[in-house]
Write a protein that binds this DNA or RNA. Structure first.
Lengths: 129, 129
DNA sequence: GACAATTGCGTACAGTTGTCCGTTTTGTTA
DNA sequence: TAACAAAACGGACAACTGTACGCAATTGTC
């Protein structure tokens, strides 16, 4: 697990899409960004290039295009990113953020029951770490 | 509610401390940063200066020192920051982040019951938003 | 009052980030 | 096969970030 340089906000946004799709070209990433996100093809291309340089993605050629795939383990990257966010904004404590999400970020009613189920599940199992 | 330039990660870290203390000098912010955070007095000073320039804090003089206080509404700033984070990492959906926090960020057993209580509370009330 | 400590103020600076352009290469199609 | 469209490649660049120094002014201490 090489120690890679940190991801910027925009880089993370792009990397996540590749991870979700499992693999993607510049064009596909562009198409999968939210419509509200106004961004140029070339810009996305730059981010993917940088992500590869930083060791987060690999690329292979397919005809005229490059296909990017995960190199670092996404799960771990997300965990680290969230942890950093937690440290800076919530004193490192997850619960206050959960509370904030529930109270201030419009968690739906349906989500609540799903959450409750998750809590039950957690309780029946010993700390999974 | 002026449209202020976004806060960088480090700026946010510093701003949050001022908000928590309600007001603070450079020295106080420095003292309230986590011990693991190795950072120079002058650097903190720079951040506070920039935060004022960006319209997030005001300062008033008290003898030799400057006391910084909130200018923007912290609640709103945090909400916006979390929302941005959510958009980039979790497709804008709060529930997956909550799940991540519970599963992957070591939520304690005690937290679980507290969370359950919160859920009950939410359910008894109509959407607060 | 002299000296040390503390603070503000101005300044600096390399690295990162977000954004994109111009040129070249490579499949595709008339 | 010549022309076209779509990509890559490589370069650019201003703004922002994180980090901190040096100096002067203020204040506390002996």
């Amino acid at each position: 697990m090489a120690d890679r340089p940190a991801l910027s906000r925009a880089e993370m946004e792009v990397a996540r899409i590749v991870w979700t799709l499992r693999e993607a070209t510049v064009r596909q990433v562009l198409d999968n960004l939210p419509e509200t996100r106004d961004i140029n093809y070339k810009t996305v291309q730059t981010f993917l290039r940088r992500l590869e340089a930083k060791g987060y993605l690999s690329s292979r050629r397919d005809g005229r295009s490059l296909i990017y795939t995960a190199d670092a383990r996404p799960r771990q990257v997300i965990r680290d990113t969230v942890r950093d966010f937690l440290n800076r904004l919530f004193n490192g404590e997850p619960l206050p953020l959960v509370e904030h999400l529930i109270r201030d970020q419009g968690l739906e009613k349906a989500d609540i029951s799903q959450l409750r189920a998750l809590l039950n599940e957690m309780e029946s199992q010993p700390g999974s770490k």
